[in-house]
Write a protein that binds this DNA or RNA. Structure first.
Lengths: 212, 212
DNA sequence: CCAGAATCTTGACACTTGTCAAGAACGAAT
DNA sequence: ATTCGTTCTTGACAAGTGTCAAGATTCTGG
């Protein structure tokens, strides 16, 4: 019977495989991030593997080394997307000690993200609507929606708490309200409507006291 | 100089041209409706002219006879879409004489449309998100959004009026709220979540008194 | 230094796509 | 019946696409 691998040798071999897996996953994430850039630029409908490759450090064949197919890549993108934005307002929530402070902080971040991350947001709306057609995306998209709903709930809860109250509406309703206003503002903003931003901020400023 | 056409002959010629234009437009609408069927089935990303043709009485070449290109066809579809759904609840608004009656009527129609017209609604969300990428769609999509906002406003106004009140929120906020809840319910419904419908109806039932 | 494994590039294949134009089919006027 | 205009079909073209596999390149372990 062949000599068995010693415990130490086994641990070394295991560690090497774990490291290899980590490198593999890191590359998958790198490719997913490149894909998100292109998806954000062109949208789901017009994003090809060759187009993604052109905006990355690799050529189109590499995707088939790391992903079973294009759909697998896009699913990885959707899953990775979550980590990008569901804690956007948490520092405002954590540091605000008055309603005015929370309002101004929240509105400041809202304005910044609408202005500076418009592509990422429209990508989110694109992917979410694709999830209605593509079953493979739904679980992750629903999970992200849940996280975003929780994010809005943390803001609303804190705002209400600072006034000695509780939010008047459910998490689902508050998320629908703020997300819908943001989406509408984004479409107008992308259409070049200069009033989109001030109207959004104004609307949210007026709504916070009434719903929380 | 050649004899001029008589007034009667001119009128006949003009009438013929008007009739020809009407037939031409009627065919454009017919093609747009066929396209909407396929768009509803497959989504914008996966809808080709050949696919549309297969689900119509024509072959792919006919689209280039009536439309300058595929984008022109899709724009016609978006414009035509408007006529389909922005008066969905008007008869409920017109006939209800109490808040309970309006609520039950509205919820009934909401349930029916979520159940029976799910594809049309996901198409709307698809087209609206495509409008963020494709400038040619934006004007029409913003117009449809305006009409839908007005539709929700008519319901909310009437509901408030039946209680001797006025809505507590703006048209934009109410539309964002109800549209967002509906969109979320649609995604869950399409994902096979049986609780989507009852949760939506319950949420709306609870919200109406608080926002109107 | 070398062998083998891992990683990536290249190029081909089959297929799809939008667009275009020739011409077939149809309808209307004479 | 014929001619002309309208409408539609057919088929081709160029370009793009996802996928696959051969092989080039790089890295690692012995």
């Amino acid at each position: 019977m062949a000599r068995q691998v010693t415990g130490a040798a086994r641990r070394v071999a295991d560690a090497a495989e774990v490291l290899r897996d980590e490198k593999f996953n890191a590359r998958r994430i790198e490719l997913a991030e490149a894909a998100l850039e292109t998806l954000g630029e062109l949208g789901f409908a017009r994003t090809s593997l060759r187009e993604i490759a052109q905006n990355s450090a690799f050529t189109h064949g590499v995707f088939h080394y790391y992903f079973s197919d294009k759909l697998d890549l896009i699913c990885c993108c959707v899953r990775h997307y979550k980590a990008k934005c569901v804690t956007r307002y948490d520092d405002v929530v954590a540091t605000a000690t008055s309603r005015d402070e929370l309002t101004e902080g929240f509105l400041g971040k809202l304005a910044a993200t609408l202005q500076n991350e418009a592509r990422m947001h429209r990508l989110w709306y694109d992917l979410r609507s694709q999830a209605m057609f593509e079953a493979a995306f739904r679980k992750d998209v629903l999970e992200i929606d849940k996280s975003l709903e929780a994010m809005i709930w943390r803001i609303a809860s804190r705002y209400a708490e600072l006034g000695g109250k509780r939010p008047a509406s459910s998490p689902a309703a508050l998320y629908a309200l703020f997300d819908g206003l943001f989406q509408s503002a984004l479409l107008k903003h992308l259409a070049g409507d200069k009033t989109a931003m001030p109207e959004l901020l104004d609307e949210v400023r007026h709504l916070l006291p009434t719903v929380c």
